[in-house]
Each structure stands twice: as structure tokens, then as C-alpha cells.
């Protein structure tokens, strides 16, 4: 019942693109080509670097091997990779939610978590013993920005509260995420 891809991690890529049509799409190609999973793109059109480039932040998920290939592929394609790494989502945490998960729209719950922009969901494992009409539980693995665990948990509490779900938090006291 669980879908395990333990070695998949969340990475943030900071790119600088030439201000030309099609550049963004071109920069995403190596990610797809090398098996990366695109999580989000942050593209500030109005913002231009002193050298005239457009900064773009791309969050992806990939295994470490694939990630290396992606960075290589981007460089080969002549795209400026300013920063590549896991710095942004360096903290992993697991939570369990239980209740009328399906009825209260699981995908909306996911969207809400992603919308916090402090965290991204890297794995979900669902357990629905009596079918989807009844109470079900799910384990979420989250990758959170370094130092934002408390913020992410606070957001989770709010989501759980609003949807009347039970939240089991990880023990985080003493800096153990």
C-alpha cells in the first residue's frame, strides 16, 4: 500500500535565462529528459539581473544520480545554473493525517501544503481499510525549507483543523525533525 521512493529528493535550481521567447521551455527540457519531476517554477518576469538575465527558480524532485545528469544537461544546453542543490528543502519531516481524507479532497490538501511555499510533498502513503467513504489515514513525507519546520507544522495544524482531520506531528523538540 505504500509507494516508496526513498532516494528521491527535492532540489532547487536557480537558473538565469536569456530574455528570449522559448527560453523557459528550453530550460525545462533537460529536466524532463533526465527523469526529473517538476514541482514548481518561480519566474519573475519583471525582475532582471544586472547582466540582463531573468532569474528563475525551479523546484524538482529526482534521485541524486538523475539530478547530477539534469544539471549537466542544463549546462550542455547553455543554460546558466546559478545554484543547484538541496539547500532550499533541506529538512524532511513525516506527518500522518487521518479522517475523511478522500471526502475532504486529498488533492486540495496537497495543494494547500504546496501553497505554503515552505514545503513540498515528496511521498504519500494512503491506508483506507474500509474503502474511501470511511475514515482513512495517510502518511505524508514533506521536504521543508531549512529552519521552517515549525512554520510548516503550524500550517499543517491549520489545514487539519479546517478539514477536521487528525494530525500526528513528528517529535521536533530539541531540533530533531
Amino acid at each position: 500500500m505504500s509507494e516508496v521512493h526513498n532516494d528521491v529528493q527535492a532540489y532547487t535550481l536557480r537558473l538565469e535565462l536569456v530574455d528570449e521567447p522559448g527560453e523557459l521551455l528550453r530550460s525545462l527540457q533537460p529536466i524532463a529528459d533526465h527523469g526529473g519531476n517538476l514541482l514548481s517554477i518561480f519566474h519573475e518576469r519583471g525582475n532582471v539581473t544586472p547582466r540582463g538575465y531573468i532569474p528563475v527558480e525551479v523546484d524538482i524532485e529526482a534521485t541524486p544520480d538523475r539530478f547530477d545528469n539534469i544539471v549537466e544537461g542544463l549546462s550542455d544546453a547553455g543554460i546558466n545554473v546559478i545554484q543547484a542543490g538541496t539547500e532550499r528543502y533541506s529538512e524532511r519531516l513525516t506527518i500522518i493525517l487521518s479522517g475523511h481524507l478522500i471526502e475532504t479532497d486529498l488533492s486540495d490538501t496537497l495543494t494547500q501544503i504546496e501553497a505554503t511555499r515552505n514545503a513540498t510533498v515528496t511521498d504519500i502513503s494512503l491506508s483506507a481499510p474500509a474503502g474511501s467513504i470511511d475514515v482513512s489515514s495517510a502518511r505524508f513525507q514533506l521536504a521543508a525549507e531549512s529552519g521552517s519546520t515549525e512554520k510548516v507544522l503550524a500550517a499543517m495544524r491549520e489545514i487539519a483543523d479546517e478539514k477536521d482531520l487528525q494530525l500526528v506531528e513528528p517529535l521536533t523538540v530539541g531540533g530533531r525533525a
Binding site: S2, T94, I96, S98, S125, S127, P129, V135, S136, S137, A138, R139, Q141, Q166, V168, L171, V173, G174
Partner: peptide, 25 residues
């Protein structure tokens, strides 16, 4: 009181478990 066996199963699959914890900090 609201915890179910399946929540503990989910925790266990991940090498974890659920305990009633007090945190004073």
C-alpha cells in the same frame, strides 16, 4: 483515543511509531 491501528501501521512502514509525548521547552 482517536488513533487507529492503520495510523500505527503507516508509521511503522516508515521505521517510526506513535507515542504519547510530552514536550517541555
Amino acid at each position: 483515543q482517536e488513533l487507529s491501528g492503520s495510523m500505527l501501521d503507516l508509521a511503522q512502514e516508515d521505521g517510526q511509531t506513535i507515542r504519547l509525548i510530552v514536550e517541555v521547552a
